[in-house]
Every structure is written in structure tokens, then in C-alpha cells.
Simulated scan of single mutants.
Amino acid sequence: MGKITIEDLQRIKEKTLHETALRHQQPNVRVTVHMGDCGISAGAREVMNAVIEELGKSGRHDIHVLASDCLGICETEPNITVAVAGQNPVVYQKMNAEKIRQVFERHVLNNEVLTEHTVEVPEPDNSTQTSKEA
């Protein structure tokens, strides 16, 4: 093995700085796979694997994939949320590997919401909370 030159070290430094900046870049899109017990039993792992595979194929560094808890609408699992910067998040229901690939291609990469797979997320029920009177 030959000696490492100053130029070699400079290239290594620039490459490392570039890769580190990509990891800390603010995401343009967040894809959250809801992986509570109900989601996992409904197939959320398969969905997560497909999302990660599609992300790798895309070569994009401005898309972050996250795992999160259940949304509380277990009958629609597996659920994912796609949040594009500057837009309201969209929740997709009853996902599988094939559907998530469609969502990734059309919504995540091309900003086209697939309304046939979306679900309305119910507002939390605050009626059971009591307020203190002065």
C-alpha cells in the first residue's frame, strides 16, 4: 500500500463532510410507518422494508423514513403518514408492499396524493377532560 498524500486526505475529508451534511439535512419528505403492535401484526414490517427499498432505489437524501406508534385507528393498519414540507400530512391506510411502492412513486417522489388509500384521522376526544374552575 502506497503512502497517503495530502490530496488523498483532502478528498477523504470533503467526501466525509458531504456525507455528514446529507445525513443532517432537513427532510423535504417524511414517511412514517406506524408500527404499534396492531400495525406490526397487520404487516407494518413488510411495509417498512418496502419503503426502505424504494428509498434506496431513489437515491434521494431529502426523504426521511421513521417508525412511530399506532395512530389509534387500528382497524386501518398498517398505516403510514407522508408529510411533504409545506403541506398537510396525509395518512394512508391498509398498506402492503405493493401499495406503498405506488404511494412512494406517486406521492413521495411526484407529489400526487393517492386519495383512494387515504384515511381521515379522527380528532382526539377532549370531552372526557375536566377543567378546573377558579
Rank of each mutant, 00 (worst) to 15 (best):
V91W: 07
D125H: 06
E7A: 15
Q93D: 03
K15S: 15
I100P: 01
V47W: 04
P27C: 00
E53F: 15
G72W: 10
A67T: 05
T118K: 06
A134D: 09
K57A: 09
A50Q: 05
E120C: 02
E46F: 07
G86L: 12
H34D: 02
V84G: 00
A42L: 00
Q26K: 15
T130Y: 10
H34K: 03
G72Y: 10
T16H: 15
T5A: 05
P78D: 03
G72N: 03
T20S: 07
A21R: 14
K99F: 09
T5W: 07
V103Q: 02
R23T: 13
H117D: 00
V51Y: 07
Y92D: 01
D62R: 12
N88P: 05
Q129A: 12
Q10N: 09
N111P: 08
G56F: 09
G39I: 03
K3Q: 08
Q10H: 12
L17K: 11
E112Q: 15
D69Q: 07
H24D: 13
E112S: 15
P89D: 00
I63Q: 11
H24Q: 14
S68L: 06
D125R: 12
T32A: 11
M1W: 07
E105M: 05
L109K: 10
N88W: 09
E116Y: 04
I63A: 13
T16M: 13
Q87M: 05
